[in-house]
Computed example of a mutant assay.
Amino acid sequence: MAFSGKVFERIRSRRTQLGLAIRVTVAATAAYAIATALHLLLPLWAVLTSLIVTQMSVGRSLKATRDYVLGTIGGAIYGGAIAILIPYSSEVGLLGLLVLSVAPLAFIAAINPSLSAATVTAVIVLLVPTMHHSDPMTSAIDRVSEVGVGAVTGLLVSFVVLPSRAVRQIRAVAAQLLELIADAFTELLAGLTRGRDNDALHRIQDGIGTAMVGMNAIGAEAERERAARLSSGPDTGPLLRTVLRLRHDVVMIGRATVVPLPVEVQMRLAAP
């Protein structure tokens, strides 16, 4: 019974990750079944798209779906236009079209990473016809259809199957971050009597900075859910700003504890 209880508690503490695993499994299975039923050329892309857009929270799934679909449509249009408007009759010609397709889209993706799917889509639209003996227009339509099936399936699964809201997640992350700040504060107070070198100070602060980045990302997802009216939780802005102020306080206290306090001050503060 004790062992079962420990296992249950371990699973319960990871229920968010377990929910994601279940959603991803359902999304992949459903995307393959739908793509097969619709007789799409490559059901693989529907499955892969469903895996990409099924994220930890609904807000993150919304962003992933938007970015991937926009990138796919843009890449399909550009790659299809290149293949149709510039015919080729040799491998060298195909190589030239590949360079012409990849270079501009890779440059755009470097500027705006949310459109990174465009480069992959353009390459697929350009090369798939050479393997399946189809025309570029059909290849572009097939690619958009496959991604559309995967994106819609993944998004619907994120809404229906054990949905995870970023508003709930940010509370748990904020609690963990406050615990890190409390532990760091205890360590910093101990340094008032002995001082601390900069390397040790940075080790204390590192985990807090990483946690802050994660909490800000989840806060953006929560606001995306609120904007889409998928969540009725409170505005996360005040929470993020308050925790950030505490983080700044810890940083300033850390700088002050590099050098120990004078002995006279330590004696006066010993009891408190």
Rank of each mutant, 00 (worst) to 15 (best):
2 A>Y: 10
2 A>E: 12
6 K>S: 15
9 E>P: 03
14 R>N: 15
15 R>V: 14
19 G>I: 05
19 G>D: 13
20 L>S: 11
25 T>S: 14
33 A>T: 06
36 T>M: 12
41 L>R: 12
45 W>I: 03
46 A>I: 08
53 V>T: 06
54 T>E: 03
58 V>W: 00
64 A>H: 00
64 A>V: 04
65 T>A: 15
67 D>C: 11
68 Y>G: 00
71 G>P: 01
78 Y>T: 02
85 L>C: 08
86 I>Y: 05
87 P>Y: 07
87 P>S: 09
92 V>N: 11
93 G>P: 02
94 L>D: 05
95 L>I: 07
102 V>Q: 01
103 A>D: 03
110 A>F: 08
112 N>G: 06
115 L>M: 11
115 L>E: 01
117 A>E: 04
122 A>R: 00
125 V>P: 00
129 P>W: 03
130 T>N: 10
133 H>M: 09
133 H>C: 02
139 S>Y: 03
144 V>E: 00
144 V>G: 01
146 E>I: 02
148 G>H: 08
149 V>D: 01
151 A>M: 07
152 V>P: 00
156 L>E: 04
163 P>W: 04
165 R>Q: 10
172 A>L: 15
173 V>M: 12
174 A>L: 09
175 A>F: 09
178 L>G: 06
180 L>H: 05
183 D>F: 11
183 D>C: 08
188 L>W: 02
189 L>V: 14
191 G>F: 02
192 L>A: 09
194 R>M: 13
197 D>F: 07
197 D>H: 09
200 A>I: 07
201 L>T: 08
203 R>S: 13
214 G>K: 04
214 G>Y: 03
218 I>N: 01
221 E>L: 00
221 E>F: 02
224 R>G: 01
230 L>F: 03
230 L>Y: 03
232 S>I: 04
233 G>F: 04
236 T>V: 13
242 T>M: 10
244 L>M: 13
245 R>N: 15
245 R>T: 15
246 L>M: 15
252 M>E: 13
259 V>H: 15
260 P>T: 06
261 L>S: 04
261 L>Q: 07
266 Q>K: 12
266 Q>T: 11
